[in-house]
Amino acid sequence: MIEFIVSLLQASIRAGTPLLYATLGEMITEKSGILNLGVEGLMIMGAMSGFALSFITGNPWIGILAGGFAGLILAFIHGFFSITLKVDQTVSGLMLVLLGLGLSGLIGKSYIGMVANYIDPIAIPLLSSLPILGKILFTQDLLVYSSLLITVFIWFILHKTSFGLSIIAAGENPEAADTAGINVDLVRYICLLVGGFLIGVGGAYLSLAYAKLWTEGMTAGRGWICLALVIFSGWIPQRAVIGAYLFGGLDVLSFKLQAIGFTVPYQLLKMIPYIATILVLLLSLIKDKYRLKAPSALGKPYFRGER
């Protein structure tokens, strides 16, 4: 029984890591006031590009970078529409989903069923030999560890630096930021692109470390779950870790239960994360009805001088 729980928790962290990257990416994007509904599209492009580049170069780390840049490029398209042209962010975000699914399907066709080099776990000396915790926490791959560092880093930027204040101001009251001499569009572009990169890395992690293969549509709605996780974590980076691992756990639960001979049909178990996401969203809304922590200017284009 303990062995089952240990392996479930270990796998939860692995399954939660792509979610964590994408959730953090979307979170800093939203903190600056830009709603990028295209997470699913960015992730799938990251997954495809990451796999393809690892396959071509033989180096999975180049794959991870490529995944990040794929996300960044799609994010840039969103930026062009939502920041430069200031059009409806919902529409351009939704179209990114379709664009990402289409492009990854078309370009990724030749990589289906291929084998590429993957990211391997690293056991941290000493720590990994701790009982129970060692296996859960310290036998993961580098990207798991770095995702936690990035979480701390984002928290630090937001709360301890003047750039963090600028991000919060751009997301809460862009006009205030503007009149304080902050270049709102630039701040939003930076957050969107960095966020897009992280989302893309999340996608690449999926194909290069978690699933270790590429299939069309393999993100299977994870991007949307991440959008919900941002709300669930109340735009607080450290809470995203909890949310991501929780949903990673739900994701692997079906495999793990089947492995120990549980007989609930696979498809019904696969529904759990989606239903759970809705329930979790609902709970956070009811709980925080009067303290909606979303950035006030989220999703609203900022036009200087047009009030």
Binding site: L165, E172, A176, T179
Partner: peptide, 26 residues
């Protein structure tokens, strides 16, 4: 000073004042 205030409601007074200024590390 505009008719409509340009303040970030979730930040404190001093944070609003130093907004857009100051060293990178606050």
């Amino acid at each position: 000073v505009h008719q409509h205030f340009n303040l970030v409601e979730t930040l404190t007074v001093w944070q609003n004042v130093v907004l857009g200024r100051g060293e990178f590390i606050l």
